[in-house]
């Protein structure tokens, strides 16, 4: 297992450099719904909702003695139910995600983990519930965050599994982080359970700059990370343009797929500053708040 500490530390550092979602929302001058969203019914919230006559089964602590003393009946003080929004994350963990073209760059997996955990931190500070899709119940406690981090480091799934996505309730927020290099048809199929259930999803496509530009020269033998497939190129420099066109077309396909589902897509290159990416995401998330879906 990779060290526990650095990822969390990096995420904390990163999140400290970012405005909170609320601040970002204020910055965009929109009053947005955030944090616990009142549900207009009795529940475990903070604010008073109504007095109700005591029924067997109610906790004695809930009895409002002052109100009860006014009459002969015993009243229970009910509070309005607040329900937090749940945000589900999923990060691809296949071997391909371990790729980095330069030693100075983070691997795609590291980059994705950092983005995911920072987002999770930001959300949980706002009182939202976060969870790793299919692996974790939503929560905003420190414990949830810790086990979330463990799941980030341990889970190794190639493509979003339908089962995991099926567990995401409707209207929940959803972040999928992957390189999405698999054929778009596979992805469409896997994402089918989510189609129409929530429009509040993000696909963050994490790619190494080398995967976009193919900056290699000479005779090269390319091998996939598992070592199961290989391709011999007599002159890598010669095919770079064609490759670039292909990969851009693929990214376009993924973007289309997102838009079709009502989701948002962002290409994240590992040589980008994660702060900029996150700022961008937060700003756009604020617009979404405005639209009221989250």
């Amino acid at each position: 297992m990779k060290p526990f500490f650095p990822l969390r530390k990096n995420a904390e550092t990163l999140s400290a450099r970012l405005p909170s979602l609320r601040a970002a929302a204020l910055q965009t001058a929109f009053h947005v719904l955030h944090g616990p969203h009142p549900r207009r019914r009795a529940g475990g919230g903070e604010s008073f909702w109504q007095f109700r006559e005591y029924r067997p089964g109610d906790q004695p602590q809930a009895i409002d003695w002052r109100q009860s003393a006014k009459t002969d009946r015993v009243f229970v003080r009910e509070k309005e139910q607040h329900k937090a929004q749940s945000i589900f994350f999923w990060v691809a963990g296949n071997q391909g995600m371990d790729f980095k073209s330069q030693s100075a760059l983070p691997s795609k997996k590291e980059f994705a983990n950092l983005l995911a955990l920072t987002l999770a931190l930001l959300y949980s500070r706002e009182g939202e519930m976060i969870a790793y899709a299919g692996r974790q119940r939503p929560g905003h406690s420190e414990k949830t965050l810790q086990s979330f981090e463990h799941l980030l480091l341990e889970t190794a799934e190639d493509t979003p599994a339908s089962a995991a996505l099926a567990a995401i309730p409707s209207h929940a927020g959803c972040y999928l982080l992957s390189d999405f290099l698999e054929p778009s048809e596979t992805l469409t199929k896997n994402l089918a359970p989510l189609d129409g259930r929530t429009h509040n999803g993000w696909m963050l496509q994490i790619l190494d700059p080398a995967e976009i530009t193919l900056p290699y020269k000479g005779r090269m033998r390319f091998e996939n990370m598992e070592g199961t497939d290989s391709h011999l190129s007599e002159n890598a420099a010669d095919i770079a343009t064609a490759y670039n066109a292909r990969i851009l077309a693929h990214i376009e396909k993924i973007r289309d797929l997102c838009l079709k589902m009502g989701w948002r897509h962002r290409l994240c290159r590992t040589d980008e500053d994660p702060v900029l990416i996150l700022r961008d995401l937060i700003t756009r998330a604020a617009h979404i708040h405005k639209s009221g879906t989250i």
Partner: peptide, 26 residues
């Protein structure tokens, strides 16, 4: 030609079928 350099590359799927114009500058 010299021995090819070996590179692990995740996006190999997009390389399949790409043939370079020239073969000998190496």
């Amino acid at each position: 030609p010299p021995a090819p350099r070996l590179l692990r590359f995740p996006a190999i799927r997009f390389l399949q079928g790409l043939e370079p114009q020239s073969k000998t500058p190496s």
